[in-house]
């Protein structure tokens, strides 16, 4: 597997604000690379640096094995991108927009090719209508058609589902899966929503405050043998003592504010349930989550007791 994107020690500061801090990661060919983080975590800044919209303060970016700073045009020819809102020229039709950006990407494309692209995103019928008459979802699909029109090897989608209804979100998700599976594209997709990423990503990077928190393959991060269970009882202290004396003592994790935490295989949960009943524990709730979800919720809830997971 060939590395498509190699980022080393990338930093960017705006004045005194450190938007991206010493970030390194690698995206390999064929990956659907999920880029997770809260709003303001530095996702967009990083993506904009990959697309030369923003100049890094320091660090190195190589794409297709070439340094981005010196091979900008060569690299960008093979990238298609949707950055945040899919803004296009509203006074032009979808077809005209697509043609315009296709030409800018350095290719000459015939009418049929352009119409096929619009067909793929379901806009063929409205191809000649001005974009200002389009809904948000249609604009988003046009944005994706523009990103794909020059048949790029790498596709970068920054928050592609922002502002879309559930059907729109599902459409985009299916499109990403098709691109990956049928057309073997390498895709980087960012989001602040875990649910979006976990259904499509083969690899996930989570950043917060410009720093890398975790990077791993989806199979690792969504591994069910690593399920996290939060238990809240009326008397957490007593229950904790009982658990420390039980077979579950090796599964115990550092305690959180309102809950006890255990890490175990999902299949073991019914047994845990039974044991808690046997202990006479006054259980209020028992919530199983896979590790990535737990991790992500820890960040997004502002709780920083996450050291247990950074191994």
């Amino acid at each position: 597997m060939q590395p498509i994107i190699q980022v080393k020690s990338l930093s960017k500061s705006f004045g005194t604000f450190q938007a991206v801090n010493n970030l390194s990661f690698t995206v390999n060919e064929g990956d659907v690379y999920g880029f997770l983080g809260q709003n303001g975590a530095g996702k967009s800044t990083t993506i904009r640096m990959l697309l030369t919209l923003i100049k890094p303060t320091s660090g190195e970016i190589k794409i297709f094995g070439l340094p981005l700073s010196s091979h900008r045009n060569e690299i960008l020819k093979n990238i298609g991108a949707v950055i945040e809102k899919p803004d296009v020229y509203k006074y032009l039709s979808a077809y005209d927009n697509l043609k315009l950006f296709a030409r800018l990407s350095g290719g000459k494309f015939d009418y049929q090719h352009l119409m096929n692209q619009l067909e793929m995103v379901g806009l063929a019928e409205r191809a000649k209508d001005k974009v200002k008459t389009y809904s948000q979802g249609m604009k988003q699909r046009l944005g994706i058609a523009i990103a794909l029109v020059h048949n790029p090897k790498l596709i970068i989608l920054d928050e592609p589902t922002n502002g879309l209804d559930p059907q729109g979100i599902a459409d985009i998700r299916n499109l990403i899966l098709r691109l990956s599976r049928e057309m073997n594209k390498t895709i980087v997709v960012s989001s602040h929503l875990l649910t979006e990423i976990e259904q499509i990503a083969t690899k996930v990077l989570i950043i917060d405050k410009g720093k890398k928190l975790i990077e791993g393959s989806a199979s690792e991060l969504f591994d069910e043998s690593q399920t996290i269970v939060e238990i809240e009882t009326l008397d957490n202290d007593t229950t904790l003592k009982q658990l420390q004396q039980s077979n579950w003592k090796n599964n115990l994790q550092p305690k959180r504010e309102h809950a006890l935490v255990l890490k175990l295989d999902r299949k073991e949960i019914p047994q845990l349930h039974k044991d808690l009943v046997a202990m006479n524990a006054a259980v209020i709730s028992l919530q199983p989550k896979h590790s990535l979800e737990d991790y992500f919720l820890q960040i997004t809830s502002g709780n920083q007791h996450v050291d247990a997971f950074t191994n």
């Binding site: 904009r48 697309l51 030369t52 919209l53 900008r72 045009n73 060569e74 690299i75 960008l76 020819k77 990238i79 991108a81 950055i83 945040e84 809102k85 803004d87 296009v88 020229y89 509203k90 950006f101 800018l104 990407s105 350095g106 523009i146």
Partner: peptide, 11 residues
């Protein structure tokens, strides 16, 4: 319009 960023990502 937001089209600037799309223009700048072209080669």
């Amino acid at each position: 319009m937001g089209t600037l960023r799309l223009m700048i990502t072209k080669p």
